[in-house]
Design a protein around this nucleic acid. Structure first.
Length: 488
RNA sequence: GCCUCCAUAGCUCAGUUGGUUAGAGCAUCUGACUGUUAAUCAGAGGGUCCUAGGUUCAAGUCCUGGUGGGGGCGCCA
């Protein structure tokens, strides 16, 4: 009988798979990074993690002379390949472990230089070590939850016959109306071609006109919806606003469904159904990670007063699933705010005293966290504080807008029924001095076969904030882009 | 963009009205320990007190500028 070398090499099994196995006595191979090592005279324990799950597999090493030298190089953060026997654990912390027979060090991690130690690190510290923070429990848990949510979003829409559309990242339209844009150019900034009047000659630029990164795929999304009925986009979005908050990024991911034949109520139904669907998906598929994140949050808040602490994470997610979102108009919200205690006692920084003012985040938080104590959808805002494309109501004052407000993070969704009437839309564009030349194609959809339609934008990172209990949006995207921050 | 707070050991932080040689926990290293769970116990090493000026007999501590970071507000998703 011939024995080939390849028959002796056992294929790698991921930790999440190993932890579920019960065929003890089998030869296995596992690869991963060392989280901690504990050693006594005759035996050492290595907690190994490969990112496939938040849980580690325990490697048990019987110490002999060879192993002792090798164990000196098994430092926190080192990468190992371990061959051994899958065993039922004698210890109390886990059911499955690996009795090591052979350990290969794939990559060392010098403890004098490796910044991650088996202890708590601050989120601020880890933000400055963004290249290594995936290796922590918190950030690997967030990455897995984030993946699950990407998948759940696509599944939700796919199950409902929505088509995913890739809208452009580079746009020639400078009138998307959602904020400051990043310019895209191949012109030599040290030697710009000029027109006779001194302005920049964009005819010499790559596209022959000025170009920007998209601030929204909505306008293009509408074009697709007015043929395919139900579409959604899920892509990167860029805002050059100088925003310095825990809930703004210069580069973020946005989900934008757009539906023909949907009015504002259909739109709200879809938004609520979608949020509940993905939250349920997280509860069903991310149990271990959510439990870890819940503990992390409670630990973080243990020094807070009891009444300032957040609701337990999983309880909070269930609560959102169980309760219908409150729906009310802007006008009704103003009434509630006018008569609210903090308004009467002048505790609001911005007092609410007249119809037409934009709501501040303190007002939104009061409605969600104090008054209704659950997610709120506000509708029918004054036209003057909303975008040009929103459907105008008969009252001549308000538009069919909706904002979905969540506790702590505020606006998670902004959307509206769109103005499908050509004359009304045209008049609005003229009134706001939006150049018709950049909007002609958008306007044409209202000329030919125009129908009522609606859509919204969901800030993906804000959703992840809510699901993970994290408080800074820079911690729920692997490589955050914010003003003066572009290190990784 | 506006307003605020912070910067002391690898990490998290303490450091009194300005006053002798700047401390603790964890991490690291050495030793002990027959199965540990961020192991435990004993010991050791480790500091440009962010930076540049200034005030003072004397500055980690007070003042000014700079740099880096946190939080709040605005813009929004």
């Amino acid at each position: 009988m011939q024995i080939h070398l390849k028959d002796l090499i056992v294929k790698r099994t991921e930790v999440r798979t190993l932890l579920k196995r019960t065929d003890f006595g089998e030869l296995i191979n596992v690869k991963g990074w060392v989280r901690t090592k504990r050693s006594s005279k005759n035996v050492a324990f290595i907690a190994l993690n490969d990112g496939s799950t938040i849980n580690n597999i325990q490697i048990v090493v019987e110490i002999n002379a060879d192993m002792e030298t090798l164990l000196n190089h098994v430092q926190t953060g080192a990468a190992l390949s371990v061959d051994g026997i899958l065993s039922e654990s004698m210890g109390s912390g886990q059911k499955v472990e690996v009795q090591a027979q052979h350990i290969q060090i794939l990559g060392e991690a010098n403890p004098n230089e490796y910044p991650l130690q088996p202890k708590k690190h601050s989120l601020e510290f880890l933000r400055e070590k963004a290249h290594l923070r995936f290796r922590t429990n918190t950030f690997s848990a967030i990455a897995r939850v984030r993946h699950a949510m990407i998948f759940a979003v696509h599944q939700f829409f796919n199950e409902r016959n929505f088509y995913n559309i890739h809208t452009p990242i580079i746009t020639g339209s400078d009138a998307e109306g959602a904020g400051e844009m990043f310019q895209v150019t191949t012109l030599d900034l040290k030697n710009l071609p000029k027109n006779e009047d001194g302005s920049i000659d964009y005819k010499k630029d790559f596209f022959g006109k000025s170009a920007n990164l998209t601030v929204s795929g909505q306008l293009e999304g509408e074009l697709a919806a007015l043929a395919l009925s139900k579409i959604y986009t899920f892509g990167p979005t860029f805002r050059a606003e100088n925003s310095n908050t825990t809930r703004h990024l210069a580069e973020f991911w946005m989900i934008e469904p757009e539906m023909a034949f949907y009015d504002l109520n259909d739109n709200m139904d879809l938004a609520e159904e979608m949020l509940k669907y993905v939250i349920q998906y997280a509860l069903d598929h991310c149990t271990d990670d959510l439990q870890f994140l819940s503990k992390r949050q409670q630990d973080e808040e243990k020094n807070k007063k009891a009444n300032e602490r957040s609701m337990e994470l999983i309880e909070k997610l269930r609560f959102v699933l169980d309760e219908p979102f409150v729906r009310l108009t802007y006008t009704e919200a103003i009434q509630i705010l006018k008569n609210s205690k903090p308004n009467k006692k002048k505790r609001f920084q911005y007092l609410v005293n007249e119809w037409g003012v934009d709501l501040q985040s303190e007002h939104e938080r009061y409605l969600v966290e104090k008054h209704f104590k659950r997610p709120v959808i506000l509708t029918d805002y004054p036209a003057s504080i909303k975008a040009f494309y929103m459907k105008q109501n008969e009252d001549g004052k308000t538009v069919r807008a909706m904002d979905v407000l969540f506790p702590q993070i505020g606006e998670i969704i902004g959307g509206s029924q769109r103005e499908e009437n050509y004359d009304k839309l045209y008049a609005k564009i003229k009134a706001l001095d939006i150049p018709e030349s950049s909007m002609w194609w958008y306007l044409e959809t209202r000329k030919f076969g125009s129908v009522p339609h609606s859509g919204f934008g969901l800030g993906f990172e804000r959703l992840i904030l809510f699901l993970t209990g994290m408080t800074n949006i820079r911690d729920v995207i692997p490589f955050p882009r914010t003003p003066l921050n572009l290190e990784f």
